[in-house]
């Protein structure tokens, strides 16, 4: 049911963990739905220099989280904002149709983390 790429990311998730002093954190989903993801980013010179994730969910949820961190790492914030759910699914060699909506939330989590970073920056500047 899953592509080899999905299974590879499920077996060996990239960038799994937390960043204790993250510059931005994005959370999507909730345990009631069965999928919940957290994305942590570290930003330097408008670039994502480090990124980590934590995920509760099915195989697709874990694999998409892992993939989005791989796609975003090293990118500028502007580039990372353009990463879509479709990009993530495509990079994984596709996802089962039923998983496209429920478990493909990782790009949203990334965007939330970037927004969170901008918000925190504004507060910093205001100080």
């Amino acid at each position: 049911m899953y592509s080899e790429k999905v299974m590879d990311h499920f077996k060996n998730p990239r960038n799994m963990g937390e960043i204790p002093d993250a510059d931005g954190i994005g959370t999507v989903g909730n345990p009631v739905c069965g999928d919940m993801m957290e994305v942590y980013i570290k930003v330097k010179d408008k670039c994502i220099v480090d990124i980590k994730f934590k995920t509760f969910g099915c195989g697709a949820a874990i694999a998409t989280s892992s993939m989005v961190t791989e796609l975003a790492k090293g990118k500028t914030l502007e580039e990372a904002k353009k990463i879509t759910r479709a990009n993530v699914a495509e990079s994984l060699g596709g996802l089962p149709k039923i998983k496209m909506h429920c478990s493909n939330l990782a790009a949203d989590a990334l965007h939330h983390a970037i927004e969170d970073y901008y918000k925190k920056q504004k507060i910093e500047e205001a100080k």
């Binding site: 999928d35 099915c58 195989g59």
Partner: peptide, 13 residues
């Protein structure tokens, strides 16, 4: 704290 399908996939592996 964990989800059933990911347990099934892990077992299948």
């Amino acid at each position: 704290f964990i989800e059933g399908e990911s347990i099934l996939l892990s077992l299948d592996m």
